[in-house]
Design a protein around this nucleic acid. Sequence first.
DNA 1: TATTTTACTTACTAGTTAGTAAGTTGTCAA
DNA 2: TTGACAACTTACTAACTAGTAAGTAAAATA
Lengths: 191, 191
Amino acid sequence: MVKIENSKRTILNLAESLLQDRGFNGFSYANISSELGVKNAAIHYHFPSKEDLACAVIQRYRERFKLWINNSRVKDLSPQEKLNWFFKIYDDFRVDNGKVCLVGSLEAEFNSIPDALKKEVEALHREMLVWLQATLKEGREAGVFQFNGEPASKAALIYSSVQGALQMARALGTKKFRDVVEQNKQDVLVA
Amino acid sequence: MVKIENSKRTILNLAESLLQDRGFNGFSYANISSELGVKNAAIHYHFPSKEDLACAVIQRYRERFKLWINNSRVKDLSPQEKLNWFFKIYDDFRVDNGKVCLVGSLEAEFNSIPDALKKEVEALHREMLVWLQATLKEGREAGVFQFNGEPASKAALIYSSVQGALQMARALGTKKFRDVVEQNKQDVLVA
DNA sequence: TATTTTACTTACTAGTTAGTAAGTTGTCAA
DNA sequence: TTGACAACTTACTAACTAGTAAGTAAAATA
């Protein structure tokens, strides 16, 4: 018996990639098992239902995000650097590989995904917005950001635009995504 | 034989609604036929493949959008009113019914939809951006809009943010969508 | 009135889907 | 050495999928 080290983590990695690539309704257990070189039932052993699997992906991502923002590598950055870090999460490897953010992918299919998954997506989205909102507030108070209105609304706009721009990049090219990022910076950074 | 007046149009309406609601991979011919009270094969008679059906939906939407923007009801509006009209397309009935824009829905599933459909989505997205860009340029030249950078980039940001915000509204409520719209206005309108 | 066309229905196929039940094998602890 | 357990495989099901081929009945047309 060939022992694959940490199958569970490998399955989660593949599922996360497939979610960003094809969405919840666009991938199957067969996609994962064939890639892993095992049978379908092996995936069901680790994650009984597709709902369990997708929820676990989001839960892991939520914990990862929490670790990131509480780590000094991000926590101690200036507001401008924090904003750049946020944009860079998506810019680095996702756009070039036609991936979108988990939140965007699942919210686009929101009306055809299981309820437990909806709750996970909602929680993740909320947590990311809270951080972005705090960063914008911090930057404005420090005099390095300027914008009208509430930090919460500005955070919602920036997040939505990144979410939409990742999807747009698939049809219109990655340059469009970077245009949106640059425009966001111009709209918020003090000249 | 019960004659349904203009089945083809009714099928297109249902398909459009299902695309906005559940996405390309999230609906089936059975969803349409059961709603219409006919058999699956009846849908295939009008639209041989699912690809044909989805393409026809986008084609019709492209023509509709073209008619709208060339109609004096929109064409003769001021730049501010044009922008309001654009936001209102989505605000009116879509957000409240958990619908997202066709472009966003299909771009989220872009890696798992047929090639012909990809081309239609790309064309529609491009056409909408061209109009938005021209509107922003017109407004800035008229002194009623102000923003840094190229109208093309600002148009990409605004469109992306609306696309993302419609999706966000599903998980976090319609208020969030309206926050994004208001923030967009604040960011572009001359005080 | 005869013929063609439109808009279907019936009946089917081949493939895919998530999910299950029962059996197998290597590993580890007692 | 034995027994328990983890991590599978084999073999299956029931439901659903897009799509097709052949037949039917009403309506339009010639």
